[in-house]
Structure formats: C-alpha cells, structure tokens
Nucleic acid binder design. Structure first.
Lengths: 366, 366
DNA sequence: AATCGATGTGAGTCCGGTCTCAATCGTAGG
DNA sequence: CCTACGATTGAGACCGGACTCACATCGATT
C-alpha cells in the first residue's frame, strides 16, 4: 500500500497551521487567499499544505459562506437526448463559472419532482434549473422562489410563476409546421405525446404541460386560419412506453378516416412511431407523412430523412445556466433576454396526401 | 408577495427548540430521530418544526456525520446517449438508496478529469463512479482510492488499479464480431474511433483506452485465427468532430485497397460514418458493410437496419451504482460479481463482399 | 519624538447540525 | 424509606473552515 492503509482523518487548516508554526487564523487566510498575510507566513503555510496534501473541505466552507457553488438540475429524463443535450449545455456553462451540477431525474413525475426540489434545497444548492413536469402543480416551485433562491425554468413554464423561463415559442412553430402540413394537403393530422392526462383530449381542456398546450393551440389556430375543423380525435396523449406508442400509432393510421400525417412530440416517441409505421408496411411519405419535434442526427439517416422541428437545445441549456448564475451572483438581467425559436427543417418525410385517402383537397397558394 | 420578501435566515434547530420550549439538543434529537426523546417533547418539536417550516441543513449534517449521501459521477460526455443511459441507471439506483448524484463532464480530457475528481473529493462525496478518459494516467484515481473513498470504474479499466470495474468483455465481443465479418468474406475491415493518440496506430502500441485496446486485440486475434493479416492501415484513431469522421470514412472507403466493412466505435461516430457512406453514394450493405458499437433505437429505423454490438448500458450503470453504494455502506461484495457481456445483433448492415472489390475469398464453413 | 494609518497576527466566535456527558427524574427492588 | 438503573434532558464540545476584533509592528507624517 502506498500510504498508511488506516483511514487517516482529513488534513485540516489546524494541521497545516501547526506544521507551519502559525495560528489557525493565519493559515486559513493564506490558504483561503483572503485577509492580510505576510509573504513569509504565506510561503510557510503553502509549503506545509503541499507537504501534508491539504485539501479544503468545501462543505465547511459552504457552511459559513452560504454558497455551495452547486446548482441543482431537475429534468424529466436524461435518457432522452433532448435533456442530455440541454444538460450538456448547462454543465458546460456551470463549469465555466465554477459551479457544479447535481442532477436529478423525475421520470416526469410531479411527486418525484417535489421531492427532488426539497432535497436539493436541503443540500443548499445556490439555485435550481427545473424542467417542470407540470405547469399546473407548482407550489413547490413557488416555495423555491419564496426561499430566495434563484430558479430558472427550462422548456416549460409554470402557471402564475414570475420566473425566468428558457423555452422556444412552441405555439409559433407549431402553427408554422401545421400550416405546412395543411398546405401540403393534409387534414387528418395526428399528434402523439406521452403527456399524462386524466381524460381524453377535448377542446379547451387544461393540460399539465404548457409546452404541449402551446403546440395544440398552434395547431388549432392553423386549422382555424385555413377554415378547417381540427381533428381532435387524432390527438393522442398518455402514450406510455414503446408498445403503447406503437398501438396508438396503429390506431390513428387504420380505419376509415385514418390520419395522413403524424406528428411525434419528441425524439423518443418518434422512434416508436416510425417503427410502427414501418411495421404497418406503410411508406413515408408516400402513404403517411411524418413530422417530429427535435432534430437528432439520426433523423438524417433514415430513408427518407425526416422532417423535423429543430430546437436550439444546447443553447437553451447554456442560456438557462447563464441566467441562473447571473441571478445567483446578483447581476442584473441582460439588456435583452435571448429569444429562442425553433425552425422547421423540411427533409423528406412530408409529402402530398395519397389520392386514395379521403376527399381530394384543393391546395391553396402559399 | 406571499411571504415576507426580505431574505429571512433559514430556520434552524435552535429556532425550533425555542418555539417548542425545549433545549436545542432535545429538538435536534426529535428532528434527527435519534437518542431518547419523550413523546411529549417529540410532538411539541415536530409541531413547531411544521409551524416554522423547518428544513434541516444537509451541509451541516454532512459535516459532522462525514457522510454527504452524494456520489460523484465523472463521464466523458453525457451528450452521448451511451452515457446518458448509463447515467440513468446510476441515478435511478442512487435515488433508491437515498443518494444524490453530482455529474461532471470531462470531454474525454484527462486534465478535466483530474480536476473533476479533485473538486468532487473536496465536496466530500461519499464515493465516485468514473469512466476514465485514460487507462494510463491514473494517479488521480489512485489518490481517490488512497483517500479511503470508494471508487468504481465504468466502461474502462485503469492500469494497476485494483478497483471494482463494471465493463463488458470487449475483447470477446470484438473477436466474435470480427470473426463474423471475416466469415462473411471481409478482409479489409476499418475501425474508426475518436480515441486520441500521439502517433498513428501501429501493432502493439500502448493505447490510452483499455476499451479500444481490447477491441483491437479482439480483432487481431480473430484475424490471426483466420490466418489473415490484420489491416493496421484501416485503424483510424483521433477522429474528432463530425467532419473529421466523415473525412476518415471517405478515406478508408476510397482508393485501390478500400475497406469493405467499417466498424464504428460508438453511436456518435456511427452517425457521421453512415452519413459519409450515404454521401459517397455507397449502399449498405451492397457496397459497404457496417457494424457499430451500442444498440440505439434509431439503428432499427435505417434502411437497412444496422447490425450492432449491444451493451447492457443501463444495467451497467445500475451495477456500478450498486457496487459503489455497497462499498460506501461497508457491506461485503456480492457472492458473484455480475459479468456483463455484449451481444452481436445481426440486422441488415453486414453483407457479403462486393465482387468488384479485391480478390474473391473463400468463405469457410462456420 | 508623538501620532497615524496600513499591515500582520492570534484568540475566539459562528455556521447548523451531531454527539458526549453529567445531571435529573421516575420508579422498581430491597 | 433508601438505592439503583433506565429514560430524559440540557449544556456544551465539535466538525472545518470564514471572519470579527483587539492587539502588536512599523515606516511615514508633522
């Protein structure tokens, strides 16, 4: 064994002080780089610290500075590349400012989120970035805000919470992409999401997620502007795992009045939807058109490459972390809060409606 | 404003004690649930705590228990779904045992890793899970081990470090899959990895990554068993970003003695490799065969679906966290350490060698 | 030479918990 | 009625740093 196998107590400032023959206060000053310390003392202390392999106890330090230099990040699912990328943006930015990140997964479960927030607060993180599972149940977030610790929301907003929120304008991009589908001739457009709800989707129902809510609003508006009725029956929420998504997909694509286009709410859902379409023996875009949220690299590899709604996910992670750290350090908000917008990337998965399905529609001029 | 806007000091045991008219010690006991406390006192204290909305300061608690109930996770890149999934396994498991996870990204940079480990140690994490960027530079890891804090390695081992390591037998699966390619007639097999090296690959050179090293060993052995010379010139390391990978791919696929099969070292690389192949106008598997490490859902969506080497990534994350927590809690190792093995999932991206390229080889019976 | 401000320095307090220890209380055993 | 032992309880030390405060030191000022 290289060093003494026994669990030796950690080296503290007191130990260093003794070795350097100075008071604990002086050693602390030299080590912590504050206050007045003579060159002589500083050298002796630093040498002793080096010799003893002293390492400061950040816990103790945090305790009386009140700053832990740690931020908490609460997301629904890191396994989802969307959050993976956002997290990357957050950690990169945090590191640059000397902050660490405690990551908690909630499985999009509000109870878990409440718990996560509490634990993180107990650990005295300096601030929180949360992608709230629910835009409605937000008492726990309000409590964070009340406790005086900065909070930044990611992707989703929270009702009645005046908190900096980093998200794209979902209604706008949803409107734009729906309009695109409508102009390509689609009227039967399905929307599949894992958002959990108590009842089946109906007009004006209050959804737990501002993000999904905004998307549906955008779709509705596009249909309305086009003078078409919005196909509520094709909005499928509560999609669970892969099997559930496949079933839902089969469901909307079969029968008399089947969907001619499917919109997947995120990359994970998209995988199962496309798989289901392939299993059904349908071709994209000849038989069904397909559109998905999030632009992952693999969407370019399929045949045809998929038309997607690209979101600046990494940059949003960066922005969220920057905003949080700014608040933590008490700096004023930047002159202009950055606005993020998604873009529709037209690749090959959206095509004209197959002649066989439904009445022929007149495609209006753009 | 719901509560007083001013930054009120956090409520402490002392405050609760005062409110409950008991000593600080008694309040602490009731709250911390230790020692002897009469029913009467307990109730008064709990009521007061509830009333004041008391929340324990985990920092303070950690400081004198010496346990932070936090584990550090150091990976190369969370953006890579491989680590995303592993991290999910780790966090799920940690949460189950009441541990939190501090996540640090190193960009596969050893200096960053050294720093990350130091910071985490300073924060007094109870243990570390590291996917070491280098299997050679491991002094910092040795220091962790020496400090008495548990350490578990993920994916890659570290030279001369007797530490629990959760990884699959790369040499074995590499041997198996290379043999498969050889039996399909391939002799010119390229291997593309982002592993950074000082010089171009040559036989017996010492690589920084045990994982890549093992894979190449497996390939070599397969070639040797088959009585064929290993095509060292097709081992391409130091692939950087997407562009670099595309260039490398083009490179090995063009010229007189082009590769007939390409093996991508991970999912991220695979994306660029496949893209490059498509750009070259080559068809998989008619013109080029393709094999990749990691089985992501999207590999089933391409045409043809890709043949992959599937690793139980999530389970490995779970195993790493379990092992670490077991060590932290001082429990003895499980009777049998779980062995993880990868499996070759034959889908459609590996085919026979196109007639045009190279000498015809006799395919030996399996 | 007396005064003043700018360092240096050490003793000791504080952060918010945990934990030791001695004192107190109740009551069962003798 | 007295003693003893377990349950309670409060005072205070302690974890490892940061920071306040009072007390030197010392060259510079007038």
């Amino acid at each position: 064994m290289s060093s003494d196998g026994a669990r030796r107590r950690d080296v503290t400032v007191a130990d260093v002080a003794k070795a350097a023959q100075v008071s604990k206060a002086q050693a602390a000053r030299a080590l912590g780089n504050y206050g007045a310390v003579s060159e002589d003392v500083r050298e002796r202390v630093l040498a002793a610290a080096e010799e003893l392999d002293y390492r400061p106890n950040e816990l103790a330090r945090s305790m009386n500075t009140g700053k832990s230099h740690t931020i908490g990040v609460v997301v629904g699912d890191i396994e989802n590349p969307h959050f993976g990328l956002a997290t990357r943006g957050i950690t990169d930015t945090a590191k640059k400012s000397g902050f660490n990140v405690i990551l908690v997964n909630t499985d999009e479960n509000t109870a878990a989120e409440v718990d996560a927030v509490r634990v993180l607060l107990d650990k005295r993180v300096d601030g929180l970035i949360v992608a709230p599972a629910s835009s409605v149940e937000t008492q726990h977030l309000r409590r964070v805000h009340d406790s005086g610790r900065p909070l930044v929301l990611l992707d989703r907003s929270a009702e009645g919470l005046e908190v900096e929120t980093v998200a794209v304008d979902m209604a706008a991009i949803s409107y734009e992409s729906t309009r695109y589908l409508l102009q390509t001739g689609h009227r039967r457009i399905a929307f599949i999401s894992t958002l959990r709800t108590d009842a089946a989707y109906t007009a004006g129902m209050r959804l737990d997620s501002s993000q999904i809510s905004d998307r549906l609003d955008g779709m509705r508006r596009a249909f309305a502007d086009m003078g078409c009725a919005f196909p509520e029956d094709l909005v499928r929420l509560n999609a669970g795992g892969a099997d559930s998504i496949r079933n839902l997909t089969r469901d909307v694509l079969q029968g008399n009045d089947a969907a001619t286009a499917v919109v997947a709410s995120d990359g994970l859902i998209a995988l199962s939807v496309v798989e289901a379409i392939q299993e059904l023996g349908l071709a994209i875009p000849a038989d069904v058109s397909f559109l998905m949220y999030d632009d992952f690299a693999w969407t370019r590899l399929t045949t045809p490459p998929l038309t997607v709604i690209a979101q600046p996910v990494y940059d949003m992670g960066v922005a969220a972390a920057s905003a949080l750290i700014r608040q933590i350090e008490g700096r004023p908000p930047a002159a202009a809060a950055p606005e993020f917008s998604a873009t529709l990337v037209r690749r090959g998965s959206v095509g004209v409606v197959p002649a066989s399905s439904g009445e022929s529609v007149e495609v209006p001029a753009l």
